[in-house]
Structure formats: C-alpha cells, structure tokens
Design a protein around this nucleic acid. Structure first.
Lengths: 325, 325
DNA sequence: CCCGTTCCGTGAATCGTTTCAAGGTCCCTA
DNA sequence: TAGGGACCTTGAAACGATTCACGGAACGGG
C-alpha cells in the first residue's frame, strides 16, 4: 500500500541505510547515489513513516499546544505565534482544545502524551501538580501560557493582568469617569480575576468607590449585550465600563449604541486583549493589548529549550481608540 | 524515562502479551491478573507509546483536518462538528491550517501523511488531482469540505452557495430594494464566486440590473469597513448590500451606522454564514446560515466510511434579523 | 479415569526507521 | 608499491506494541 524505505532501497539498488542517509544526512551520500535514491522515492511516492521514526528516535518532532478555545481570537493568535516559532525550529504542532473542561483537558493530555510530543504548551484548566510532575518525569517539558497554577513547578509565560486592569481603570478615571461598572464572566478564571483586582486596586488607591460588578456566564458578545441590558434596566447608567475582554466589550458597545446611548460621550467602554475586531467595532474600542503572538513564541522557546522554573511576565499596553477617549 | 509495556509486565509478573491484552481486550484476561496489571500501570505511570502501536497496526487512530483559517469562526465550527463526530468514533484529530497558501497546504499534507492519519478532511487551496490520487493510493480517504476541486475524484460535502446567494438576493428584492451592491473578497474562492453568481442570477431573472461589485483583499470586518467607506465616498448609496460573509457584513454595518446611515431603513445588509457574532452585531444581521457543524460531521462520517465518489450538498437557510427586514 | 472444552497466558515474530561499527574503494604520498 | 586517509556504503540491532499459534490448567461428562 504505502512504500517503505526498503522498497525504495531495492528500486535504487542500495541498502536501507543509504536511503535513510539520503533522508537525514544527504551531504554524506555521493551525488550520483543521492539522485538515484531521490528518483526512486519520487517514482514510488514514498512518504516517511513518522511512527517508525518516532519509535526509533524515542520522541517525535511535534509539540502539543493545548488551549482553552480556538473560537476565541485571543487563543488563535497565541497559537499562531507558537506555530510560527515551531515551524522555524523544524517542529510541527498538535493542537488541542480543552473547551474549559478539566475532563477534556485530561483526555487531550493523554492523547498528546501517547503521541510522544517533545513538549507541551498549555492554558491550564484543572491540571494538577501530580500530572505535570509525571509529564516532566517522562521528559516532556510543560510551559503554561496565559495563566499559572499555584504550586505547580513549570515554566510560564503570562501577561501582568493586574497591571492591565490598572491601566484600564486609570485611563477611565483620567477621563473623569468615576461611576464605573465591571463586566466579567462567571466562573472567573485567574486572568479575569487579576484584571478586576488590578482595576479595583487602582480605584481604591485613588480614593474611589469599587465599581459595580456584573457577571455573565460567558466571554462572548452575546454575554456583553445581556450585561448592557441589565445595566440599562437599572435605570441609571455608569459613565464608564470596564470589560473582562474585547468580545464582551463589543457586545456591550453594540447594545448601548442600539439603545441610543452615546459611546464614549455618555458611557466610555474599555475592553481587554486588542483582538482584530476591536479596531473595527462600531465604536473602535479602547482596550488593553496583550502581546499574544509573543506569548506563543516565548512559550515555544521555553519548551524547546526545556528550561527550568522560568516565569516570564509580559507587559500589557493601553491602546486608546474612540470608545474611551 | 518512560515506562514500557515490558516493565509493566515484569512488575505485574506477567508477559508482555498479557499486558497488551489488558489494554486492548480486557475481557479476555482473568479478573485477578487484570487488576494486578492495572495496578502496575498506575504505579509506573505507564502511557502507551502510540508510535509503536501505529507502526505495528499500520495506521493510527487519528484523522487529519486541514482548514484554511482557524481564526474564521466559520471554520472553527466546521472543525468542532468534525471533532465531536470523531471522538465519538474513538478517533482523535490532527488540526492544520493552510492559511490559504498552497505551499503551506502541501507542507501540512506531508505532515499528516507522515503521521499516518487514516483519513483527511480538507478545504482545498491548491491541491491537485495527482496528490489526492497518491493519498488514496496510500489508503487515505480524502473528503473535501466547503468546496470541491474540479476533476479531482474525492468525496465532498458542500453547501449550495448558488442557492444561498439567490436566497439573499431574493430577500432584498422582496423588501423592495433594487439598487444593490455586492461586497466580496479578491481573489475570490469558489464559494464566494458561487454566492455572487447565485445572487446575480436571481436578479437578472427578476429583470433587475446587476449589482455594483466591490472587492476587498480580505474577508474581515476591517475589509467591510473599507468597502462601506468606498460606497459612502461614491456619494450615492445603494439601498441594499449583499456581503460575501458575515465578518465583512459586520464591518459594513459598523461603518454605515457610524456614518449615521440607518440600517435597515436607508440600507439593508445581508451577510452569509450566520456565525455567532451575527446575532449580536449592532444591528443583528440578516444572513444565510450554513449548517457548519453538519458539514464537519458528515465529512467525518464519509472519511471514516472510506466512501467513494459521494458528493453531499447541504441546503443553506435564510435567517431574517433586523439588518434586512 | 480419559477425553474434550474452555479459559488464560506465553513468547516470538513483526511493523519501518535510525544508527553505528565495520568494511570497501579510491587516491595521494612516501 | 605499500600505507594511510577520505569518502561511501552496508547490514544488523534496536525502538515498543500487537498478534497469534500454541500450550497448560481446570473442569465436566461419559
């Protein structure tokens, strides 16, 4: 069915070792032989059997990337950053999504471990220290991205979300907005909690009252719309809204605009992430940019270098557009 | 480093064959033995080496899914439909993205073939008949999804985009909109061309003039905004706009709303895909829904069944919301 | 008590590739 | 012409799981 290295060897009139050399160390093979072997490979449509190669070499040339949700552009960008860096290093990526479920996360880890990945990049959901220890014991370096898990000994690349929340809050107060609301998702993952904590800290340090917090069950535009509806129903609107991410912020802005509320004149809105959509929203979104591709790239480098106990924290950056200016 | 089946066998005091039986045919192993083996597996943290298994069995338990762009929610949903169906069948998915580049598509196919996938689901970009023939000769069934390639003998699952374009156009004319524009991307992939052709045919059949066509280099909200700007610059707006997909439509609507144009009163806008964002746009989007998860699911079933020459065409459905009503 | 069955477990062969010690040519130099 | 490199090529031993023909044990019926 599928030609093996042995048949290529027979067709080219050489030994299997030579074919392998052509594949892996072409410079050690005489020009004439190499040409003959390559011709045989082409004629037979030979494709290397990666399973056999991985078995022999002890580990593959793939890295596992396990993110929470590929429908969220934030993760897609992290993933792309990782992929670019990996391809440059001659590796390929095995993608998995946990969909936020510890159960599915476990299944994905099983899969990736069985596949013999030589490293793992994860946005952890329910991952425990024991599992990570086993992975490391099996020679698979683990790098956390976007968030860490307390007490687990693995590298991580994160963004300083506390600083990000602070940036957002300080921007709104600098604009003279003091009656604020914070829209987040429930249950709150650590990054979301940190953003809110950063904002809160900035406000209390400035002697302001804590913002009203509204939680919706998802991080989607639909959730944002519902949150804005709830605010509208209260009768009295805040003059500034901090959102846990851009998708929610887009929903909030859409609902406000629809209700005839002027953004930013009546209510200023700040998002988080700076996804591509943010700039082309009805009212271009002021937001806190995360260096997403860098997250992916650096995580990859740590994983490939099999680094120990390094924790990289990247700085977020405020991007001012019209929705809060 | 990583325990093998042999060490498990030694620890449990049985032969490797028995361990393999516990793993693959547990009912054929006596209760007491099985318990002992499972305990050994647990103590050693044994994980099956999929490379060895795949090598011996001749092919893995994975399917390759190669889509154009995971950042487009359309593909994410197709992908999810496929994953759900695959997991149900005991398979796992290897994701790849071609980013619309034939070169990257080739690399991904090489990768997937080396990995020994037992089937392939592809939104083809530059795939030629020869390559597909080779894949089939290697025992890998290929299923095209979203679009087909002329003259290539492979199963396909597509949506009737001509009918979809027609639905959109007829809806606008039924609303009394006769001065239309069509916003698309350049270069136009077959599905886009078909949508436009369907719309055009519906209009000419109704004795209407062809719509003005505007092409932008991408299928993004940013592109939609630019297209709308160009329309605004013309001075005289159409009263209906057909968009090649929802992402573009969202950009168009956003820009129009920003410019003070009333949607749908002044200009009605119709999208295509019915992605999640469509329903929570500033003006909820009237659009043509594609059964995306069904696309993924059916493609999976065809691939697993190793079907021959079947071409499934699914029907699109008009979803009327506020942007054109 | 013997034979047939059923139930479990064994161990060696096998998958396709990589690796490496060993051997073979050829050429250059002394 | 012998000796020594440099350069190529070979062949066999792994890697770890699966499979299967075979054999031992236990049991029941005649």
């Amino acid at each position: 069915m599928r030609a093996s290295i042995r048949e290529v060897a027979r067709r080219a009139g050489v030994s299997v070792g030579t074919v392998s050399n052509v594949l892996n160390r072409p410079e050690q093979v005489a020009e004439a032989t190499r040409v003959r072997v390559l011709a045989a490979i082409d004629e037979l449509g030979f494709v290397r059997n990666e399973a056999a190669r991985a078995l022999r070499k002890g580990s593959g040339r793939t890295l596992g990337v396990l993110v929470e949700d590929l429908a969220n552009p934030y993760f897609t960008d992290v993933a792309r950053g990782a992929e670019a860096a990996l391809n440059a290093g001659g590796f390929d990526v095995l993608w998995c999504t946990s969909d936020g479920s510890p159960e599915k996360e476990r299944r994905c880890l099983d899969f990736l471990e069985e596949q013999g990945v030589s490293g793992l990049i994860v946005t952890p959901v329910g991952l425990d220290a024991r599992r990570v220890a086993r992975l490391r014991a099996h020679g698979i370096p683990v790098v956390f991205v976007d968030r860490r898990i307390a007490g687990v000994n693995a590298c991580s690349v994160t963004v300083d979300h506390v600083a990000g929340g602070r940036l957002a809050a300080e921007h709104l107060t600098a604009l003279g907005r003091h009656d604020l609301a914070f829209v987040t998702a429930e249950p709150e993952t650590p990054p979301l909690r940190q953003r809110r904590a950063g904002a809160l800290r900035a406000l209390t340090q400035a002697g302001r009252t804590a913002p009203l917090t509204i939680a919706e069950p998802a991080l989607s535009p639909a959730a944002g719309r519902r949150a804005a509806q709830r605010l509208l129903d209260f009768g009295t609107l805040p003059d500034g809204i901090l959102c846990a991410n851009d998708l929610i912020a887009i929903g909030v802005v859409n609902e406000l605009v629809r209700a005839g509320v002027k953004v930013p004149q009546d209510v200023a809105v700040v998002g988080y992430d700076d996804i591509e959509l943010a700039a082309s929203a009805v009212v271009p979104l002021t937001t806190v940019r995360q260096p997403r591709r860098d997250l992916g790239r650096i995580a990859t480098e740590l994983a490939l270098a099999d680094a120990e106990g390094r924790h990289i924290v990247l700085a977020p950056e405020l991007v001012v557009r019209e929705s809060a200016s």
